[in-house]
């Protein structure tokens, strides 16, 4: 059965346990970080940092608010990255039928990396400058197939993260949304019908991060994609 995540940001304390648990499970190397005035470190996602807690300080009606956004691949129902990548190599991005996980393979080294990154509404994929491969969260597919929760979900101490069957999570999302709206009238779910990682934002999602939800302005197809499709050169 297809899987889904709910990330209830009203419960996130930005402890970054998920960020470290992800690194730990995947044995990804540390990155050299600098103090740039925020707890958000490293500053951005990278080939070796598939999950990142973003910190944003904002002012609402003269009061400071601190927003936490643990960012990861949303595992779209219909992943634009897959559509873009298969123009160059159809083995590059695959979608697991059982879980719905969108997975980048080693063949991502053959694709137009910039194009794939631009195709992502959430700006998630990152390229390894050495191998040219692209990487992002793989939903811990190896853990799921062995009946374990993804590393980030297991580690979450506050219950911000839930993982389960699609219908269960959809129901839970509505339940948590209703509860959150009592305290935060602006609370909203991020693209709940299009992605497998649904965030419950307590206020306007774009305040957390510019690309926290799919942008309302349509992304244009690039020339390469358009010609490939018109000429039918894509391997269908």
């Amino acid at each position: 059965m297809a899987k889904k995540f709910l990330v209830d940001l009203t419960r996130c304390t930005a402890c970054r346990g998920c960020q470290v648990a992800c690194k730990q499970w995947k044995k990804l190397p540390a990155e050299a970080t600098v103090n740039w005035g925020s707890h958000q470190n490293p500053k951005d996602l990278s080939f070796n940092t598939l999950r990142l807690v973003r910190f944003e300080e904002i002012v609402n009606d003269g009061k400071v608010d601190w927003l936490f956004f643990p960012e990861q691949c949303r595992h779209c129902y219909e992943p634009p990255c897959l559509g873009q990548a298969e123009l160059d190599d159809e083995r590059a991005v695959i979608q697991d039928e059982a879980t719905g996980a969108v997975i980048f393979t080693e063949y991502t080294k053959n694709v137009d990396a910039e194009g794939v990154r631009e195709a992502c509404p959430y700006d998630i994929p990152r390229k390894d400058p050495v191998t040219g491969q692209l990487s992002k969260c793989d939903m811990c597919i190896d853990r799921i197939q062995n009946g374990m929760k993804p590393a980030c979900v297991l580690s979450c101490p506050t219950g911000a993260m839930s993982f389960g069957e699609e219908e269960e999570i959809d129901a839970l999302a509505q339940e948590r949304l209703a509860a959150a709206q009592k305290r935060y009238p602006e609370a909203v779910l991020g693209d709940p019908e299009d992605v497998r990682v649904v965030y419950l934002f307590q206020q306007d999602p774009t305040k957390y991060f510019e690309k926290a939800i799919a942008s309302a302005s349509p992304t244009m197809m690039n020339r390469k994609q358009m010609f490939a499709r018109l000429l039918g050169t894509t391997k269908a």
């Binding site: 779209c76 219909e78 992943p79 634009p80 990255c81 897959l82 559509g83 873009q84 298969e86 159809e90 195709a119 509404p121 909203v188 779910l189 991020g190 693209d191 709940p192 019908e193 299009d194 934002f201 306007d204 999602p205 939800i213 799919a214 942008s215 309302a216 349509p218 992304t219 244009m220 197809m221 690039n222 994609q225 358009m226 490939a228 499709r229 018109l230 039918g232 894509t234 391997k235 269908a236």
Partner: peptide, 27 residues
């Protein structure tokens, strides 16, 4: 703020073309 499914499809270049050109594109 919720983006409807229709809007979302419009956003994703790959899926949008598949819809527009009747399955020429996406595998």
């Amino acid at each position: 703020m919720t983006v409807s499914r229709r809007q979302f499809l419009k956003l994703s270049a790959g899926a949008a073309t598949a819809t527009a050109f009747g399955g020429l594109g996406i595998s």
